[in-house]
Design a protein around this nucleic acid. Structure first.
Length: 869
DNA sequence: TACAACGTAA
DNA sequence: CAATATACGTTGTA
């Protein structure tokens, strides 16, 4: 049995955060309140550097990388191993890898691109090696990419990644041999054993759906015997059928993915199989200078695979699992623990029971290389394998989904996060495939269609499917329709949301043979991301952002972090304030506002379309109002939203809009080319990546020398610095370099620069400081009004009560105030005022509700404690 | 339109 | 360190 290893998808952030912290790329001043950087008059402390990438910064970055590379050299490693403990520690900390000095180098190590560290199962790739591109293809197949910046890439071998490799058709021996070939040192024994042992049982155990029942299936009876003995597993099996069912196996042929060149008859069958393995990188290998004997040998190794038409697979043994999602999940998890990863495969070609859907990609549809590669991983051996495909925003995830559906040709279910993307998915299906519009239906609150024929596609949202409360009649009808049939494929858009407690129910509620998860950011800040392995399947493919942008599939982005010093007044208050208000202070920092104004002006003059993001609604509104730009946030009505977006895309006048986190996901604005972040949610890596994604599909990306811009405005010497480092971790792993700009050239000369006098700044500060208290005051007033009113009988309160809400509304618009007040401002109509008389104020109802909830929870706990005694 | 319920963050 | 508090966003239903 292989040693137990925890799947490590969620661990990726840890390493990168450490790397960032320990520095090298951009030196950061983290010293909150260090007075040497902060000058009294609020001027920029080190304003000597020029606009754009400061050369000094750049040089330091490069030299740091060279240092890191040097640190990996033989001499260094050898000497360090014998050196004092302290330097050993330094080495480990500064690069983030463990000491490799105990390894013996092969004589021709310089040509070989890999370091393999047996202790951490990490593999380090020297991306500057002539063989790097080949090694990369291989590594993405067998290991998890942890980080892929410019020079040193980091991968990790996990049981999960090996399992993915084996299920694509590689064999353990091939992996070991090839790894050894690329490695600078002889492959460590532990690593060799790990690969051989853990892959022994891989691909042997499958979860299959037959007649709306789930089974565990394997060709090796002994495995099943062992599993049935296990207490956990047997508890979740259908008790009546604990006996093992044995059947004859069915033979199958290879699959063809529509939309590929091969489907168009351009490539021979034989070549295809080789390509599937060796052509992993979209770049191809034509530009490999160092191609030589080694290459030939390497390619030969890879070609050998795939003749695993196993003759011994004559019988299949299976047991039935209980149907609820918890049981399914537990059984699969337990099998993993016992060393038998469960594969979910769908033999769609031989499925006679479910009707075949008439769908194909249109003749014009051509998949890009990387899309093809990802699909090959899914349809590796003529069956459809469940799993996840990770592609950056704007890289055509939808097309991958459509192509997958076209390959399986069975009833398909698409689940997305919002009803907006539901409509988009349907449009994409109609665009890329020849599906009959009658066969593709939408299931949302507004529209509950069905397809008329025996099978088809339904697009819906997660919340629609996982509704716990009562449903409308139509919705219930529709759910019944969906739960009682078997689906060939379920596409899970934005799959990173699935592990949430509610959404994970979908996998148990709906019968699907195969699941495909799509996402750009396989990240959550909690530890639930690894649950996806059990819920949908392994990660089949993850694209490299840098490579896609080099090939022009997504825009090239210049990322910059603009350091804005706090003004004296603001910083004093910042130091004094606790917690909540601090955030407001560093967002409203006048220097930040000026930087924002300057950048907007600069990019408008260049003809860019700019989006400004702010999480804080107060800041959003005051920035936008001061700069006279449009803004959209949660409280903005649907009509207003559409109007602003329409104008932004097509009008020459509207070149800048402000968005709250409403714009983080599923907003398609191909016009946008520049992005400024003024406030963001703590250290959310996912948010950062998704915001960057807004400009990746820029229409103009293929123009000569085109660059999109991504700015993060950060108030210097505040907590923001720390968060911003965390946020960037993911993008840095993807290879993005953040430049630090500490002075914007020419900002002093910008006409109409806001807050340029101390008086103005003081006024702003007062507004900001008042903001919280006033909003508190308003609450008090409402409380008074509310309690006063409710004391009176309904009819009597007329004039006085009517004045109440109006007065608060007036105060609010003056202060452009607290977030909760959006409600009042939008409810100025007479109707509302009358309603307020009879109804409790929503704010207080909510508070009351929450209080009750907490009380109930406490009582519940008390009861539990008592019953335990 | 209001409400309820939920997700996402450190 | 965990559970909690919080603000903002979303959805579907009445």
């Amino acid at each position: 049995m292989p040693p137990k290893r925890k799947a490590t998808v969620s661990a990726r952030g840890v390493g990168s955060a450490k790397r960032l912290a320990s520095g090298t790329a951009t030196p950061r001043s983290r010293s909150i309140g260090s007075s040497d950087e902060y000058t009294e008059d609020g001027e920029y402390g080190n304003g000597s550097e020029a606009d754009g990438p400061p050369p000094a910064e750049e040089r330091r970055r490069v030299s740091n990388i060279q240092k890191a590379v040097k640190a990996m050299s033989v001499e260094n490693l050898k000497s360090r191993g014998k050196g004092p403990t302290k330097s050993k520690h330094e080495a480990t900390a500064s690069i983030g890898f463990s000491n490799l000095s105990y390894l013996d180098l092969k004589p021709d190590h310089e040509k070989r691109p890999l370091w393999v560290d047996a202790k951490t199962d990490k593999i380090i790739l020297e991306n500057f090696s002539p063989f790097a591109s080949r090694a990369k293809d291989f590594l993405t197949t067998i290991a998890e990419p942890l980080s892929r910046p410019a020079y040193l890439h980091e991968y990790r071998l996990t049981s999960n990644s090996l399992y993915a490799a084996i299920s694509v058709g590689l064999e353990a021996e091939d992996i070991v041999d090839t790894l050894d070939k690329f490695s600078k040192t002889p492959l460590p024994e532990e690593t060799r054993n790990f690969i051989m042992n853990s892959s022994k049982a891989y691909g042997k155990l499958k979860k299959v759906l037959k007649n709306s029942k789930y089974y565990l299936e394997t060709p090796e009876n002994s495995i099943l015997q062992e599993l049935v003995q296990d207490a956990v597993i047997s508890a979740h099996l259908v008790s009546s059928s604990k006996d093992i069912i044995t059947e004859k196996a069915v033979k199958k042929g290879p699959a063809v993915i529509p939309g590929t060149r091969e489907a168009a008859g351009l490539i021979q069958q034989v070549d295809r199989q080789n390509n599937a393995q060796s052509d992993g990188g979209p770049s191809g290998h034509a530009n490999d200078a160092g191609a030589g004997k080694d290459d030939e040998m390497f390619l030969a190794t890879l070609r050998e695979e795939d003749d695993d038409e196993d003759e011994d697979q004559k019988h299949i043994h299976s047991v039935e699992i209980l149907r609820d999602s918890a049981s399914l999940e537990r059984v699969i998890e337990r099998c993993w623990e016992m060393g038998y990863p469960v594969l979910e495969e769908y033999d769609h070609e031989n499925d006679e029971k479910n009707a075949t859907l008439d769908i194909n990609t249109t003749s014009k549809t051509r998949l890009r290389d990387y899309q093809e590669t990802s699909l090959r991983k899914m349809f590796g051996n003529s069956r459809a394998r469940s799993g996840m495909i990770v592609l950056p925003c704007g890289a055509g995830k939808t097309l991958v989904g459509v192509a997958a559906a076209c390959t399986i040709k069975k009833g398909t279910l698409v689940l997305c996060t919002s009803s907006m993307s539901v409509v988009q998915w349907r449009q994409e299906f109609l665009k890329w495939s020849n599906i009959d519009p009658d066969d593709i239906a939408i299931f949302t609150a507004e529209s509950k269609q069905k397809f008329s024929r025996s099978t088809g596609i339904i697009v819906s949202t997660y919340s629609m499917v996982t509704q716990t409360r009562s449903r409308s009649y139509d919705a219930q009808k529709m759910m019944d329709f969906m739960t009682e049939r078997e689906w060939g494929l379920m596409i899970l858009d934005e799959v990173h949301v699935v592990p949430a407690s509610i959404f994970r129910k979908v996998t148990g509620q709906l019968y699907t043979h195969c699941k495909l998860g799509l996402t750009a950011t396989l990240l959550r800040e909690d530890d639930k991301i690894s649950d996806l392995n059990l819920l949908v399947g392994p990660k089949l493919y993850e694209a490299n952002w840098m490579e896609l942008s080099q090939q022009g599939h997504i825009a090239t982005v210049q990322c910059a972090e603009v350091w804005c010093p706090m003004t004296t007044e603001f910083y004093q208050e910042y130091l004094r304030e606790k917690s909540r208000k601090r955030g407001l202070l560093y967002v409203m920092n006048p220097r930040k506002f000026q930087a924002c104004q300057f950048l907007i002006d600069y990019h408008e003059k260049r003809g860019d379309k700019t989006i400004v993001f702010s999480d804080n609604v107060y800041a959003l509104q005051s920035y936008a109002k001061k700069l006279k730009k449009f803004f959209i946030y949660g409280g903005t009505g649907q009509v207003e939203r559409m109007r602003v977006l329409e104008n932004f895309q097509h009008s020459e006048v509207v070149n800048t809009i402000f968005l709250s986190k409403i714009g983080d996901t599923s907003l398609d604005l191909p016009e946008a080319t520049c992005l400024i972040q003024i406030s963001s949610h703590y250290g959310s890596r996912r948010q950062e990546a998704q915001r960057l994604g807004r400009i990746l599909r820029a229409k103009r990306r293929n123009d000569e020398g085109f660059n999109a811009f991504f700015y993060s405005l950060v108030s210097k010497d505040t907590q923001e610095m720390y968060y911003s480092a965390k946020r960037q971790a993911f993008l840095v792993d993807q290879g993005y370099a953040f430049k630090v700009i500490s002075h914007l050239n020419g900002i002093e000369n910008l006409p109409g620069l806001a807050y340029s006098t101390a008086a103005e700044r003081r006024e702003l500060l007062q507004d900001v400081m008042l903001q919280n208290e006033e909003s508190w005051g308003v609450e008090q007033i409402q409380d008074d009004l509310f309690s006063g009113r409710s004391a009176h009988p309904k009819g009597k309160v007329t004039a006085l009560a009517k004045k109440g809400p109006k007065r608060t509304a007036g105060m609010l618009s003056d202060l452009s105030g607290a977030q909760d007040m959006a409600y009042i401002e939008y409810n100025k109509s007479r109707n509302k005022e009358l309603k307020v008389q009879t109804k409790h104020n929503p704010l207080f109802r909510k508070i009351e509700r929450d209080r009750e909830k907490r009380k109930a929870a406490r009582l519940e706990q008390l009861k539990e404690v008592r019953s335990m005694r």
